[in-house]
Write a protein that binds this DNA or RNA. Structure first.
Length: 463
RNA sequence: GCGCCCGUAGCUCAGCCGGAUAGAGCAACGGCCUUCUAAGCCGUGGGUCGGGGGUUCGAGUCCCUCCGGGCGCGCCA
């Protein structure tokens, strides 16, 4: 199967808008792979389009001033703003930019070289973010819009020959009766602009065809914003009609809601700007550092590592634990709290168990396999442990990681209850009971670790 | 205008193919540390599941309608 997720626009720096697709998609991919599925990741990056004419023009202008490309592109956001300003204020530059778009489309070598340079720097930035986020995407998963460029004229021609696409007001349009409204008005999908250019509908269609025809996908999952629901429906409907997608191939759009600020409006900086992902993640680690400051268990070096895992884990868990399709409110204090359904709470539950083994001086492998369930807390915990498999199956089926989060939280809560009620290493606990409870605890730790790993969240031995 | 999504406790959210007195966490209040991490645990109060119809033995869940909010709808992605 093919899973399409993350897909940032390379023209700018990654921002919070890319977060949900990236971490939800990655969690689902991990879950699918854990079940033995063959998953082909596709990072459909935005590396093509009119804005690149402007960016390449700006890059060339700066290179002519003797600047190094890496340096000029060090701050992509800033570079973009500069290019935009240049474009808006200098008509000559605007013309140049438009020419570059044409030359880029035509495969002009010099322009392509600059485009490659830009793309390379921007992708390197994405790699950094993925690494920091502990997301499994690598360069080999990149398959941007540009990849489909050559196929677009071919595809449109096919649609025309099939009688699906027809000219309307100068553009090539597919009218879908399947998606008509109550009044019978068909839903229009433009596959080629009046000026001959193509749109994302076209490259998305090409992507569907490539994924099925070349990659052999039996199931395609695309993680993108819920606002693209109509667009995805259109693409899939056209793909079916055009014969790109046979009946037996599952075409799924896995939409997600918007990340909101405390004010209930889309998450922005205090000044109303877009929040850069790099800054958000830095802040997460910073805040986590403050949170674990009081820990007496950690050395200074360990704190750095733990803060990273806790901070990043908190951001990811906060997102993953909410129903995917709904908007959710981003709240630092809540996600970094050790109370409630949070990343830190689960990581803490894990370290608490590891601490027991350290204290006991016992390795899980040394335990006898005899499990004796007597107390109600022990039984409840064991019962919960057995449900892990079916929850994972369900997440794979529905692409809903929050089901796994809810499960892990329930499991951790049951463990805490068990831990309070059932002494393990205390005096007076007979060896058999001690062994059984250690075994049970170990199973919980393993399950927490596996579950968090499927979510792309790391654990630690101490915190 | 047309279409999609949402409305569950003060706040943030769960509630599998409809099934028993609707669940958590924050917040509020009250308990539990001389021994396994109190970053925890136990308990109390708090909801006409937006309103109204309908289907059903049974509806937070399915259907219709109304109210309220968000988003989308031919040449951006």
């Amino acid at each position: 199967m093919v899973v399409d997720y993350s897909g940032p626009n390379l023209a700018k720096e990654m921002h919070v808008g890319h977060l949900r697709s990236t971490i939800i998609g990655d969690a689902v991919v991990r879950v699918l792979e854990s079940l033995g599925q063959t998953v082909i990741r596709q990072n459909h990056v935005g590396d093509w389009g009119t804005q690149f004419g402007m960016l390449i023009g700006e890059l060339e202008a700066q290179l002519q001033h003797g600047d190094q490309a890496e340096l000029a592109l060090q701050d992509l956001e800033h570079f973009y703003q500069r290019a935009k300003k240049h474009f808006d204020e200098d008509p000559a530059f605007a013309d140049l930019a438009r020419q570059y778009v044409v030359r880029l489309q035509a495969g002009d070598e010099q322009v392509l070289r600059l485009w490659h340079k830009f793309r390379e720097v921007s992708l390197a930035h994405c790699e950094e973010i993925y690494h920091l986020l502990n997301v499994s995407l690598t360069p080999e998963h990149i398959r941007g819009e540009s990849f489909y460029n050559d196929d677009l004229p071919v595809l449109v021609e096919e649609l025309k020959q099939q009688g699906l696409a027809q000219e309307d007001q100068g553009a090539q349009v597919v009218f879908l009766q399947e998606l008509a409204d109550k009044n019978g008005n068909p839903s229009p999908v433009i596959v080629q602009k009046k000026d001959g250019g193509y749109l994302y509908s076209t490259s998305d269609l090409a992507a569907v065809r490539f994924r099925i025809g070349t990659l052999g996908a039996q199931r395609i999952m695309v993680f993108s914003d819920a606002r693209q629901a109509l667009h995805m429906q259109q693409v899939y409907t056209v793909a079916r009609k055009a014969g790109f997608a046979p009946e037996n191939v599952r075409l799924e759009h896995c939409p997600f809601g918007t990340m909101m600020g405390a004010d209930g409006k889309p998450f922005k900086t205090r000044t109303g700007g877009t929040v850069k992902l790099a800054e958000l993640l830095d802040e997460a680690v910073e805040r986590a550092t403050a949170v674990i400051q009081g820990s007496g268990e950690l050395s200074a070096e360990e704190k750095v590592e733990v803060a990273r895992k806790v901070g990043i884990g908190a951001v990811k868990y906060a997102d993953l634990s909410k129903t995917r399709t709904l908007d959710y409110v981003f709240n630092w204090d809540q996600m970094l709290s050790f109370e409630g359904n949070t990343g830190p709470y689960l990581q803490y539950a894990y370290t608490r168990i590891r601490s027991i083994f350290r204290k006991a001086g016992v390795e899980p492998t040394e335990l006898s396999s005899t499990l004796t369930l007597v107390e109600t807390q022990e039984k409840a915990l064991a019962l919960k442990l057995m449900q892990f498999g079916e929850i994972v199956e369900q997440v794979a089926q529905d692409a809903m990681p929050h089901l796994l989060c809810t499960y892990l939280y329930d499991l951790a809560s049951l463990f805490m209850t068990f831990y309070e009620a059932c002494p393990i290493l205390k005096e007076g606990v007979d060896p058999a009971t001690r062994n059984s409870r250690l075994l049970l605890s170990h199973q919980v730790a393993q399950t927490l670790r596996s579950g968090l790993d499927l979510l792309g969240i790391e654990v630690m031995e101490k915190m």
